[in-house]
Design a binder for these strands. Sequence first.
DNA 1: CTCCAGGCATGAG
DNA 2: CTCATGCATGGA
Length: 293
Amino acid sequence: MILEAASFDLSSTLISGQCFRWNRVEAGKWRGIVRGTVLSAHQIDGLLHTAFESPGGMAEAGSEGLRYYFDLEQDYESTIRQLKGDPRMDSLIERCGGLHILRQDPFEVLISFIISAFNNILRIKRCVQGVARGWGDSIGDSGSGEFGFPTPTALSRASEEALRACGLGYRARYVLESSACVAGLGDAFDSLVDLPTGELRQELLRFPGVGPKVVECVLLFGYHRLEAFPIDVWVRRAMCELFYRGRETSDDRIARRAQREFGATAGIAQQYLFTGFRTGRGERTHRRPREVV
DNA sequence: CTCCAGGCATGAG
DNA sequence: CTCATGCATGGA
Protein backbone atom coordinates (compact mmCIF):
# COMPACT_ATOMS: atom_id res chain seq x y z
CA MET A 1 0.00 0.00 0.00
CA ILE A 2 1.41 3.36 -1.02
CA LEU A 3 0.50 6.54 0.83
CA GLU A 4 1.07 10.16 -0.01
CA ALA A 5 3.16 11.59 2.80
CA ALA A 6 4.93 14.61 1.45
CA SER A 7 5.97 16.35 4.65
CA PHE A 8 6.49 13.14 6.63
CA ASP A 9 9.84 11.55 7.43
CA LEU A 10 9.62 7.87 8.33
CA SER A 11 13.13 7.36 9.65
CA SER A 12 13.29 10.39 11.91
CA THR A 13 9.90 9.39 13.29
CA LEU A 14 10.94 5.84 14.05
CA ILE A 15 14.26 6.70 15.68
CA SER A 16 12.75 9.40 17.85
CA GLY A 17 12.39 7.26 20.96
CA GLN A 18 8.58 7.30 21.03
CA CYS A 19 8.20 3.67 19.86
CA PHE A 20 10.19 0.60 20.77
CA ARG A 21 8.99 -2.05 18.38
CA TRP A 22 10.41 -0.78 15.11
CA ASN A 23 13.77 -1.96 13.78
CA ARG A 24 15.77 -0.93 10.75
CA VAL A 25 16.28 -3.92 8.47
CA GLU A 26 18.44 -2.06 5.98
CA ALA A 27 19.06 1.52 4.95
CA GLY A 28 15.73 3.30 5.03
CA LYS A 29 13.74 0.09 5.41
CA TRP A 30 11.86 -0.61 8.61
CA ARG A 31 9.90 -3.42 10.20
CA GLY A 32 7.64 -2.96 13.17
CA ILE A 33 4.98 -4.61 15.28
CA VAL A 34 1.85 -2.47 15.26
CA ARG A 35 -1.45 -3.44 16.85
CA GLY A 36 -0.78 -7.13 16.57
CA THR A 37 0.52 -7.17 13.03
CA VAL A 38 3.93 -7.03 11.38
CA LEU A 39 4.28 -3.97 9.22
CA SER A 40 7.17 -3.13 6.94
CA ALA A 41 7.69 0.35 5.61
CA HIS A 42 10.08 2.46 3.59
CA GLN A 43 9.85 5.88 2.08
CA ILE A 44 10.86 7.15 -1.31
CA ASP A 45 10.57 10.91 -1.50
CA GLY A 46 7.00 11.79 -0.63
CA LEU A 47 5.65 8.27 -0.93
CA LEU A 48 5.32 5.92 2.00
CA HIS A 49 5.44 2.28 0.94
CA THR A 50 3.94 -0.15 3.43
CA ALA A 51 3.18 -3.83 3.53
CA PHE A 52 1.50 -5.98 6.14
CA GLU A 53 3.39 -9.21 6.62
CA SER A 54 0.55 -10.74 8.58
CA PRO A 55 -3.24 -10.62 8.41
CA GLY A 56 -5.67 -9.30 10.97
CA GLY A 57 -5.74 -6.31 13.30
CA MET A 58 -4.45 -3.20 11.67
CA ALA A 59 -4.26 -4.77 8.23
CA GLU A 60 -8.02 -4.53 8.02
CA ALA A 61 -8.11 -0.83 8.77
CA GLY A 62 -6.52 -0.27 5.36
CA SER A 63 -4.95 2.97 4.28
CA GLU A 64 -7.10 4.94 6.65
CA GLY A 65 -5.66 3.03 9.58
CA LEU A 66 -2.15 3.65 8.35
CA ARG A 67 -2.74 7.35 7.83
CA TYR A 68 -4.07 7.48 11.36
CA TYR A 69 -1.16 5.55 12.85
CA PHE A 70 1.47 7.69 11.13
CA ASP A 71 -0.59 10.80 11.90
CA LEU A 72 -0.57 12.01 8.31
CA GLU A 73 -3.63 14.20 8.80
CA GLN A 74 -2.17 16.41 11.53
CA ASP A 75 -1.04 19.84 10.32
CA TYR A 76 2.63 19.73 11.27
CA GLU A 77 3.40 22.55 8.88
CA SER A 78 1.62 25.09 11.01
CA THR A 79 3.58 24.04 14.09
CA ILE A 80 6.80 24.30 12.10
CA ARG A 81 5.85 27.75 10.81
CA GLN A 82 5.26 28.85 14.37
CA LEU A 83 8.62 27.50 15.55
CA LYS A 84 10.50 29.04 12.67
CA GLY A 85 10.14 32.45 14.22
CA ASP A 86 12.85 31.32 16.63
CA PRO A 87 16.36 30.89 15.17
CA ARG A 88 17.20 28.48 17.99
CA MET A 89 14.86 25.94 16.46
CA ASP A 90 15.93 26.27 12.82
CA SER A 91 18.63 23.60 12.72
CA LEU A 92 16.41 21.22 14.68
CA ILE A 93 13.55 21.69 12.26
CA GLU A 94 15.90 21.05 9.38
CA ARG A 95 17.04 17.78 10.94
CA CYS A 96 13.71 16.56 12.35
CA GLY A 97 11.12 18.39 10.31
CA GLY A 98 9.19 15.36 9.13
CA LEU A 99 8.98 13.77 12.56
CA HIS A 100 5.44 12.81 13.48
CA ILE A 101 3.85 11.68 16.74
CA LEU A 102 2.59 8.15 16.16
CA ARG A 103 -0.86 7.04 17.29
CA GLN A 104 0.10 4.13 19.49
CA ASP A 105 -1.88 1.94 21.84
CA PRO A 106 -2.23 3.58 25.27
CA PHE A 107 -1.57 0.44 27.33
CA GLU A 108 1.54 -0.44 25.35
CA VAL A 109 2.81 3.11 25.77
CA LEU A 110 2.01 3.09 29.48
CA ILE A 111 4.00 -0.08 30.13
CA SER A 112 6.82 0.82 27.74
CA PHE A 113 7.42 4.13 29.45
CA ILE A 114 7.23 2.64 32.92
CA ILE A 115 10.08 0.45 31.68
CA SER A 116 11.84 3.52 30.26
CA ALA A 117 12.52 5.05 33.66
CA PHE A 118 16.25 5.39 34.41
CA ASN A 119 16.97 3.22 31.40
CA ASN A 120 18.28 3.60 27.86
CA ILE A 121 16.53 3.08 24.57
CA LEU A 122 18.48 0.00 23.53
CA ARG A 123 17.57 -1.77 26.77
CA ILE A 124 13.98 -0.52 26.71
CA LYS A 125 13.52 -2.11 23.30
CA ARG A 126 14.90 -5.40 24.53
CA CYS A 127 12.68 -5.32 27.61
CA VAL A 128 9.54 -4.52 25.62
CA GLN A 129 10.32 -7.26 23.14
CA GLY A 130 10.80 -9.69 26.00
CA VAL A 131 7.46 -8.72 27.48
CA ALA A 132 5.76 -9.29 24.13
CA ARG A 133 7.49 -12.62 23.63
CA GLY A 134 6.54 -13.77 27.10
CA TRP A 135 2.91 -12.70 27.36
CA GLY A 136 1.75 -11.42 23.96
CA ASP A 137 -0.01 -13.39 21.25
CA SER A 138 2.07 -14.95 18.54
CA ILE A 139 1.57 -13.23 15.19
CA GLY A 140 0.68 -15.29 12.14
CA ASP A 141 0.33 -19.03 11.87
CA SER A 142 3.18 -20.31 13.96
CA GLY A 143 6.78 -19.58 13.33
CA SER A 144 6.92 -15.89 12.55
CA GLY A 145 8.67 -15.45 15.87
CA GLU A 146 6.90 -12.14 16.34
CA PHE A 147 4.56 -11.29 19.16
CA GLY A 148 2.04 -8.55 19.71
CA PHE A 149 2.01 -6.53 22.89
CA PRO A 150 0.12 -8.36 25.64
CA THR A 151 -3.30 -7.42 26.92
CA PRO A 152 -3.49 -5.98 30.45
CA THR A 153 -4.98 -9.21 31.75
CA ALA A 154 -2.32 -11.40 30.16
CA LEU A 155 0.49 -9.24 31.46
CA SER A 156 -1.02 -9.03 34.93
CA ARG A 157 -0.69 -12.80 35.18
CA ALA A 158 3.08 -12.68 34.80
CA SER A 159 5.31 -13.38 37.77
CA GLU A 160 7.66 -10.71 38.98
CA GLU A 161 10.55 -13.14 38.61
CA ALA A 162 9.75 -13.84 34.97
CA LEU A 163 9.54 -10.12 34.26
CA ARG A 164 12.90 -9.58 35.91
CA ALA A 165 14.30 -12.26 33.64
CA CYS A 166 13.40 -9.97 30.74
CA GLY A 167 15.76 -7.39 32.20
CA LEU A 168 13.15 -5.15 33.79
CA GLY A 169 14.96 -5.03 37.12
CA TYR A 170 13.13 -3.15 39.85
CA ARG A 171 10.58 -1.92 37.28
CA ALA A 172 9.08 -5.42 37.15
CA ARG A 173 6.89 -4.74 40.15
CA TYR A 174 5.55 -1.48 38.66
CA VAL A 175 4.72 -3.18 35.38
CA LEU A 176 2.92 -5.95 37.19
CA GLU A 177 0.95 -3.66 39.49
CA SER A 178 0.03 -1.21 36.76
CA SER A 179 -1.12 -4.03 34.50
CA ALA A 180 -3.32 -5.33 37.27
CA CYS A 181 -4.75 -1.85 37.77
CA VAL A 182 -5.59 -1.51 34.09
CA ALA A 183 -7.04 -5.01 33.94
CA GLY A 184 -9.14 -4.21 36.99
CA LEU A 185 -10.47 -1.05 35.40
CA GLY A 186 -11.72 -2.94 32.37
CA ASP A 187 -13.76 -0.74 30.07
CA ALA A 188 -13.15 2.22 32.36
CA PHE A 189 -9.56 2.27 31.15
CA ASP A 190 -10.73 2.69 27.56
CA SER A 191 -12.99 5.53 28.66
CA LEU A 192 -10.01 7.53 29.86
CA VAL A 193 -9.53 8.76 26.28
CA ASP A 194 -12.62 10.93 26.77
CA LEU A 195 -11.11 12.89 29.64
CA PRO A 196 -9.60 16.33 29.17
CA THR A 197 -5.82 16.31 29.46
CA GLY A 198 -5.62 17.64 33.01
CA GLU A 199 -7.92 14.99 34.41
CA LEU A 200 -6.33 12.26 32.33
CA ARG A 201 -2.93 13.26 33.72
CA GLN A 202 -4.22 12.95 37.28
CA GLU A 203 -5.65 9.51 36.58
CA LEU A 204 -2.49 8.21 34.95
CA LEU A 205 -0.33 9.49 37.78
CA ARG A 206 -2.07 7.03 40.08
CA PHE A 207 -0.41 4.06 38.36
CA PRO A 208 2.68 2.67 40.11
CA GLY A 209 5.85 3.61 38.27
CA VAL A 210 4.22 6.62 36.62
CA GLY A 211 5.62 9.98 37.71
CA PRO A 212 5.80 13.44 36.21
CA LYS A 213 8.02 12.48 33.28
CA VAL A 214 6.43 9.17 32.30
CA VAL A 215 2.94 10.62 32.49
CA GLU A 216 3.81 13.25 29.88
CA CYS A 217 5.11 10.52 27.57
CA VAL A 218 1.91 8.53 27.96
CA LEU A 219 -0.18 11.62 27.29
CA LEU A 220 1.83 12.53 24.20
CA PHE A 221 2.50 9.13 22.64
CA GLY A 222 -0.44 7.12 23.94
CA TYR A 223 -3.21 9.72 23.89
CA HIS A 224 -1.86 12.15 21.32
CA ARG A 225 -2.16 15.12 23.64
CA LEU A 226 0.20 17.35 21.70
CA GLU A 227 0.48 19.90 24.49
CA ALA A 228 2.23 17.34 26.74
CA PHE A 229 5.92 18.06 27.21
CA PRO A 230 8.05 15.24 28.66
CA ILE A 231 11.28 16.50 30.22
CA ASP A 232 14.06 13.92 30.30
CA VAL A 233 17.82 14.43 30.53
CA TRP A 234 18.12 15.28 26.82
CA VAL A 235 15.23 17.75 26.73
CA ARG A 236 16.54 19.32 29.93
CA ARG A 237 19.95 19.79 28.30
CA ALA A 238 18.39 21.18 25.15
CA MET A 239 16.13 23.65 26.94
CA CYS A 240 18.86 24.83 29.30
CA GLU A 241 21.25 25.38 26.42
CA LEU A 242 18.77 27.08 24.10
CA PHE A 243 16.71 29.12 26.54
CA TYR A 244 18.73 29.52 29.74
CA ARG A 245 22.29 30.15 28.48
CA GLY A 246 23.39 26.73 29.67
CA ARG A 247 22.33 27.38 33.26
CA GLU A 248 20.67 24.58 35.19
CA THR A 249 16.96 25.21 35.53
CA SER A 250 14.20 23.40 37.37
CA ASP A 251 11.84 21.19 35.39
CA ASP A 252 9.00 23.31 36.61
CA ARG A 253 10.38 26.43 34.99
CA ILE A 254 11.29 24.52 31.83
CA ALA A 255 7.75 23.19 31.55
CA ARG A 256 6.21 26.64 31.87
CA ARG A 257 8.71 28.08 29.42
CA ALA A 258 7.86 25.34 26.93
CA GLN A 259 4.17 26.09 27.10
CA ARG A 260 4.91 29.76 26.56
CA GLU A 261 7.32 29.18 23.66
CA PHE A 262 5.60 26.28 21.92
CA GLY A 263 1.97 26.42 22.99
CA ALA A 264 -0.61 23.76 22.18
CA THR A 265 1.79 21.59 20.16
CA ALA A 266 4.72 21.74 22.60
CA GLY A 267 5.01 17.98 22.39
CA ILE A 268 6.05 18.17 18.76
CA ALA A 269 8.75 20.71 19.57
CA GLN A 270 9.81 18.46 22.41
CA GLN A 271 10.45 15.60 19.98
CA TYR A 272 12.59 17.87 17.83
CA LEU A 273 14.60 18.83 20.90
CA PHE A 274 14.94 15.25 22.11
CA THR A 275 15.92 13.75 18.77
CA GLY A 276 18.11 16.64 17.76
CA PHE A 277 20.17 16.63 20.92
CA ARG A 278 20.26 12.89 21.48
CA THR A 279 21.39 11.93 18.00
CA GLY A 280 23.53 14.89 17.15
CA ARG A 281 24.72 17.61 19.41
CA GLY A 282 24.98 15.35 22.40
CA GLU A 283 28.11 13.90 20.85
CA ARG A 284 30.09 16.65 22.44
CA THR A 285 29.56 15.15 25.85
CA HIS A 286 28.46 11.61 25.07
CA ARG A 287 29.04 9.16 22.36
CA ARG A 288 25.89 8.54 20.46
CA PRO A 289 24.35 5.20 21.38
CA ARG A 290 24.61 2.78 18.51
CA GLU A 291 21.21 2.27 16.94
CA VAL A 292 19.68 -1.04 17.66
CA VAL A 293 19.67 -4.40 15.86
C1' DC B 1 37.31 0.33 36.33
C1' DT B 2 33.64 4.47 35.90
C1' DC B 3 29.75 6.79 33.93
C1' DC B 4 25.33 6.90 31.98
C1' DA B 5 20.47 5.92 30.50
C1' DG B 6 13.25 9.16 27.87
C1' DG B 7 12.83 8.60 36.74
C1' DC B 8 10.22 6.91 40.51
C1' DA B 9 9.16 5.71 45.32
C1' DT B 10 10.35 6.43 49.73
C1' DG B 11 11.87 8.58 53.91
C1' DA B 12 13.97 12.59 56.38
C1' DG B 13 13.79 17.14 57.59
C1' DC C 1 6.23 20.90 51.29
C1' DT C 2 11.33 19.97 49.30
C1' DC C 3 15.34 17.27 49.01
C1' DA C 4 18.41 13.09 49.10
C1' DT C 5 18.93 8.42 48.20
C1' DG C 6 18.47 3.60 46.43
C1' DC C 7 17.38 1.16 42.66
C1' DA C 8 18.78 -3.23 38.28
C1' DT C 9 21.04 -3.65 34.08
C1' DG C 10 24.21 -3.49 30.32
C1' DG C 11 26.73 -0.61 26.81
C1' DA C 12 30.43 2.70 26.01
